[in-house]
Amino acid sequence: MRTDKAGWPLKLAAGAGIAFLHLPLLFILAYAFSTEEKSYQWPLPGLTTKWFGVAWGRQDIWDALTLSVEIAAISTAIALVLGTLAAGGLARAKFFGRETLSLLIILPIALPGIVTGISLRTAFGAADIPFSVLTIVLGHATFCIVVVYNNAVARLRRTSPSLIEASMDLGADAFQTFRYVLLPTLGTALLAGGMLAFALSFDEVIVTTFTAGQQETLPIWMLTELIRPRQRPVTNVVAVFVILVTLLPILAAYYLTRDTAETAGSGK
């Protein structure tokens, strides 16, 4: 007998897997309300919401947050422009070395962050470029481009090439074709890619460590904060915030690309 329903052992295993992945996140949330500030104690000795107020009032958190948002925004902007251009160039054109070039663009996301980090640090050092916000942005852009590029390429491959020809045929020049046909077609793919890129950049630690000078992004701030045994739950408050900030765009990106998956290539 064949059945479409999974048996209970499989369900149990799947459930355990999901729980293992997500239960620890609940601890982060719980500790944000702990009254104990020197160490993580379970069960919680008491509940309080005062750490939210404390976190709100701390200037170092605000500085780190602003820096992180700034870097993520600039990296995403760079990635959107360069990733789209690369996708446009590589999606249809056929030339010698195209596959290699495509692989080279994707490589930074496959490489361990530490390799990207060390190589960038060495290169910046050799070129005598002082470590600054700019160097962090460049580091982040290397992998942000990949996300945008992948999304754009996938959408372009699903789009009928005759759409562009139809536009030209009806009297639109290259710019108008880009503006009225290509951009709307790519729209949701770029939005999704951009949000993923933003989320990736926002919580990046490794590459940031190697490309930063004195700057402290939010994830770096959290890392240093863990070492200091002072107002520990504040870190958890920030962590909860980071989960929300990264989760929401990813969810949005997921829904955006899912809804358009069937209609994107329906030129036929």
Binding site: E165, A166, V181, K268
Partner: peptide
């Protein structure tokens, strides 16, 4: 001054 009807129609899906 030539216009084409494409085999796959090539209608713009977002319009």
């Amino acid at each position: 001054a030539v216009n084409t009807v494409f085999q796959d129609y090539a209608l713009f899906p977002h319009m």
